[in-house]
Protein backbone atom coordinates (compact mmCIF):
# COMPACT_ATOMS: atom_id res chain seq x y z
CA UNK A 1 0.00 0.00 0.00
CA UNK A 2 0.91 3.67 -0.05
CA UNK A 3 2.65 4.31 3.30
CA UNK A 4 6.05 2.66 2.84
CA UNK A 5 7.92 1.09 5.71
CA UNK A 6 6.18 2.74 8.64
CA UNK A 7 5.63 -0.01 11.17
CA UNK A 8 2.55 0.47 13.28
CA UNK A 9 1.17 3.19 11.05
CA UNK A 10 -2.62 3.09 11.20
CA UNK A 11 -3.58 1.85 7.77
CA UNK A 12 -7.34 1.88 7.63
CA UNK A 13 -7.91 1.99 3.91
CA UNK A 14 -8.67 -1.71 3.55
CA UNK A 15 -5.02 -2.63 3.94
CA UNK A 16 -3.74 -5.76 5.66
CA UNK A 17 -6.09 -6.42 8.55
CA UNK A 18 -3.32 -7.39 10.94
CA UNK A 19 -2.09 -3.81 11.05
CA UNK A 20 -5.52 -2.25 11.04
CA UNK A 21 -7.25 -4.25 13.76
CA UNK A 22 -5.57 -3.22 17.04
CA UNK A 23 -6.58 0.46 17.04
CA UNK A 24 -10.15 -0.50 16.10
CA UNK A 25 -10.49 -3.23 18.68
CA UNK A 26 -9.27 -1.22 21.58
CA UNK A 27 -12.51 0.71 22.02
CA UNK A 28 -14.67 -2.32 22.65
CA UNK A 29 -12.08 -3.79 24.95
CA UNK A 30 -11.83 -0.54 26.86
CA UNK A 31 -15.60 -0.49 27.26
CA UNK A 32 -15.61 -4.06 28.58
CA UNK A 33 -12.86 -3.26 31.13
CA UNK A 34 -14.75 -0.12 32.10
CA UNK A 35 -17.98 -2.08 32.53
CA UNK A 36 -16.18 -4.52 34.85
CA UNK A 37 -14.87 -1.66 37.00
CA UNK A 38 -18.30 0.03 36.96
CA UNK A 39 -19.95 -3.22 38.02
CA UNK A 40 -17.49 -3.34 40.89
CA UNK A 41 -18.43 0.18 41.98
CA UNK A 42 -22.09 -0.77 41.80
CA UNK A 43 -21.48 -3.91 43.87
CA UNK A 44 -19.63 -1.86 46.50
CA UNK A 45 -22.46 0.68 46.69
CA UNK A 46 -25.28 -1.84 46.60
CA UNK A 47 -23.61 -4.06 49.20
CA UNK A 48 -24.16 -1.27 51.73
CA UNK A 49 -27.88 -1.57 51.10
CA UNK A 50 -28.12 -5.24 52.04
CA UNK A 51 -30.09 -5.61 55.26
CA UNK A 52 -28.03 -7.04 58.10
CA UNK A 53 -30.19 -8.92 60.59
CA UNK A 54 -29.53 -8.22 64.26
CA UNK A 55 -28.57 -11.82 64.91
CA UNK A 56 -25.43 -11.57 62.77
CA UNK A 57 -22.47 -11.64 65.12
CA UNK A 58 -19.35 -11.49 62.96
CA UNK A 59 -19.30 -11.47 59.16
CA UNK A 60 -22.72 -10.56 57.82
CA UNK A 61 -24.12 -10.80 54.32
CA UNK A 62 -22.28 -7.63 53.27
CA UNK A 63 -18.66 -8.65 53.78
CA UNK A 64 -18.22 -10.99 50.82
CA UNK A 65 -19.93 -8.61 48.37
CA UNK A 66 -17.49 -5.92 49.49
CA UNK A 67 -14.59 -8.24 48.71
CA UNK A 68 -16.02 -9.15 45.29
CA UNK A 69 -16.73 -5.50 44.50
CA UNK A 70 -13.20 -4.50 45.43
CA UNK A 71 -11.77 -7.28 43.24
CA UNK A 72 -13.94 -6.18 40.29
CA UNK A 73 -12.85 -2.56 40.67
CA UNK A 74 -9.19 -3.55 40.98
CA UNK A 75 -9.05 -5.85 37.95
CA UNK A 76 -11.30 -3.53 35.92
CA UNK A 77 -8.96 -0.62 36.57
CA UNK A 78 -5.91 -2.76 35.86
CA UNK A 79 -7.42 -3.86 32.55
CA UNK A 80 -8.24 -0.27 31.56
CA UNK A 81 -4.60 0.61 32.16
CA UNK A 82 -3.44 -2.47 30.22
CA UNK A 83 -5.62 -1.66 27.23
CA UNK A 84 -4.61 1.99 27.25
CA UNK A 85 -0.95 1.05 27.27
CA UNK A 86 -1.55 -1.07 24.19
CA UNK A 87 -1.53 -4.55 25.67
CA UNK A 88 -4.73 -5.78 24.08
CA UNK A 89 -6.14 -9.21 24.75
CA UNK A 90 -5.53 -12.09 22.42
CA UNK A 91 -8.88 -13.17 21.02
CA UNK A 92 -9.67 -16.82 21.22
CA UNK A 93 -8.91 -19.08 18.30
CA UNK A 94 -10.77 -22.19 17.18
CA UNK A 95 -11.21 -24.64 14.34
CA UNK A 96 -13.92 -22.66 12.67
CA UNK A 97 -12.67 -19.18 13.43
CA UNK A 98 -11.02 -17.33 10.61
CA UNK A 99 -8.40 -15.13 12.25
CA UNK A 100 -8.01 -12.96 9.18
CA UNK A 101 -11.53 -11.56 8.97
CA UNK A 102 -13.09 -8.72 10.93
CA UNK A 103 -15.98 -9.26 13.28
CA UNK A 104 -19.24 -9.48 11.38
CA UNK A 105 -21.53 -7.55 13.73
CA UNK A 106 -24.55 -8.14 11.52
CA UNK A 107 -24.26 -11.89 12.02
CA UNK A 108 -23.92 -11.39 15.78
CA UNK A 109 -27.06 -9.21 15.86
CA UNK A 110 -29.04 -11.64 13.70
CA UNK A 111 -28.01 -14.67 15.79
CA UNK A 112 -29.10 -12.88 18.95
CA UNK A 113 -32.33 -11.86 17.20
CA UNK A 114 -33.02 -15.51 16.28
CA UNK A 115 -32.53 -16.47 19.93
CA UNK A 116 -34.81 -13.69 21.20
CA UNK A 117 -37.54 -14.58 18.69
CA UNK A 118 -37.22 -18.20 19.84
CA UNK A 119 -37.73 -17.13 23.48
CA UNK A 120 -40.95 -15.29 22.72
CA UNK A 121 -42.23 -17.88 20.26
CA UNK A 122 -42.15 -20.82 22.71
CA UNK A 123 -45.40 -19.93 24.45
CA UNK A 124 -47.11 -18.78 21.25
CA UNK A 125 -46.44 -21.48 18.66
CA UNK A 126 -45.09 -24.24 20.92
CA UNK A 127 -41.56 -25.53 21.47
CA UNK A 128 -41.00 -27.55 18.26
CA UNK A 129 -41.84 -24.61 16.01
CA UNK A 130 -39.91 -22.12 18.12
CA UNK A 131 -36.96 -24.51 17.88
CA UNK A 132 -37.37 -24.68 14.11
CA UNK A 133 -37.30 -20.88 13.94
CA UNK A 134 -34.10 -20.76 16.00
CA UNK A 135 -32.33 -23.51 14.06
CA UNK A 136 -33.33 -22.30 10.61
CA UNK A 137 -32.69 -18.66 11.47
CA UNK A 138 -29.23 -19.34 12.89
CA UNK A 139 -28.30 -21.70 10.03
CA UNK A 140 -29.29 -19.18 7.36
CA UNK A 141 -27.41 -16.38 9.16
CA UNK A 142 -24.34 -18.64 9.25
CA UNK A 143 -24.58 -19.32 5.53
CA UNK A 144 -26.95 -22.25 4.94
CA UNK A 145 -28.37 -22.15 1.42
CA UNK A 146 -31.03 -22.61 0.15
CA UNK A 147 -33.07 -21.25 3.05
CA UNK A 148 -35.92 -23.73 2.67
CA UNK A 149 -33.61 -26.67 3.26
CA UNK A 150 -32.50 -25.13 6.54
CA UNK A 151 -36.14 -24.48 7.45
CA UNK A 152 -37.02 -28.09 6.69
CA UNK A 153 -34.06 -29.36 8.73
CA UNK A 154 -35.12 -27.12 11.61
CA UNK A 155 -38.68 -28.40 11.53
CA UNK A 156 -37.58 -32.03 11.45
CA UNK A 157 -35.09 -31.45 14.27
CA UNK A 158 -37.62 -29.56 16.38
CA UNK A 159 -40.21 -32.31 16.05
CA UNK A 160 -37.61 -35.02 16.65
CA UNK A 161 -36.43 -33.38 19.89
CA UNK A 162 -40.05 -32.94 20.92
CA UNK A 163 -40.74 -36.65 20.41
CA UNK A 164 -37.53 -37.84 22.10
CA UNK A 165 -37.35 -35.38 25.01
CA UNK A 166 -41.02 -34.56 25.42
CA UNK A 167 -42.56 -37.90 24.58
CA UNK A 168 -39.93 -40.47 25.55
CA UNK A 169 -37.86 -38.75 28.27
CA UNK A 170 -40.80 -36.92 29.80
CA UNK A 171 -39.67 -33.28 29.70
CA UNK A 172 -42.77 -31.10 29.61
CA UNK A 173 -42.01 -29.16 26.46
CA UNK A 174 -45.18 -27.40 25.27
CA UNK A 175 -46.13 -28.84 21.86
CA UNK A 176 -48.12 -25.71 21.01
CA UNK A 177 -51.68 -25.17 19.75
CA UNK A 178 -51.09 -26.89 16.40
CA UNK A 179 -50.04 -30.22 17.91
CA UNK A 180 -52.10 -30.05 21.08
CA UNK A 181 -53.96 -33.29 20.52
CA UNK A 182 -51.02 -35.48 19.44
CA UNK A 183 -50.43 -37.93 22.32
CA UNK A 184 -46.78 -38.92 21.79
CA UNK A 185 -45.60 -35.29 21.83
CA UNK A 186 -46.84 -34.67 25.33
CA UNK A 187 -44.36 -33.95 28.06
Amino acid sequence: MSTPGAPGAPGHEGGPTAAATPPRRRWGELVLAGVIAALGVYVLLAAGGITVPGSTNTLGPRAFPYLVGALLVAVGAALVVLVLTGRAGQEEGGEDVDPTVRTDWLSVALLVAALVVHVFAINVVGWPFAAAILFAGAAVVLGARPWWRAALAGLVLGLLVQVVFGGLLGLSLPPGPLLEGVPFLRG
Partner: peptide, 26 residues
Protein backbone atom coordinates in the same frame (compact mmCIF):
# COMPACT_ATOMS: atom_id res chain seq x y z
CA UNK B 1 -20.64 -25.60 10.11
CA UNK B 2 -23.86 -23.60 9.74
CA UNK B 3 -25.90 -26.61 10.86
CA UNK B 4 -23.42 -27.47 13.62
CA UNK B 5 -23.59 -24.08 15.32
CA UNK B 6 -27.34 -23.73 14.75
CA UNK B 7 -27.69 -27.11 16.47
CA UNK B 8 -25.48 -26.00 19.37
CA UNK B 9 -27.72 -22.96 19.87
CA UNK B 10 -30.84 -25.13 19.71
CA UNK B 11 -29.62 -27.63 22.30
CA UNK B 12 -28.31 -24.84 24.52
CA UNK B 13 -31.74 -23.21 24.45
CA UNK B 14 -33.39 -26.56 25.16
CA UNK B 15 -31.12 -27.20 28.14
CA UNK B 16 -31.91 -23.92 29.86
CA UNK B 17 -35.61 -24.00 28.99
CA UNK B 18 -35.93 -27.50 30.44
CA UNK B 19 -34.60 -26.33 33.84
CA UNK B 20 -37.86 -24.65 34.90
CA UNK B 21 -39.83 -24.59 31.64
CA UNK B 22 -39.67 -20.83 31.77
CA UNK B 23 -38.68 -18.66 28.77
CA UNK B 24 -37.08 -16.23 31.25
CA UNK B 25 -34.20 -18.70 31.67
CA UNK B 26 -33.66 -18.73 27.91
Amino acid sequence: RHYLYAGILLFGALGSYALNFSPVDV
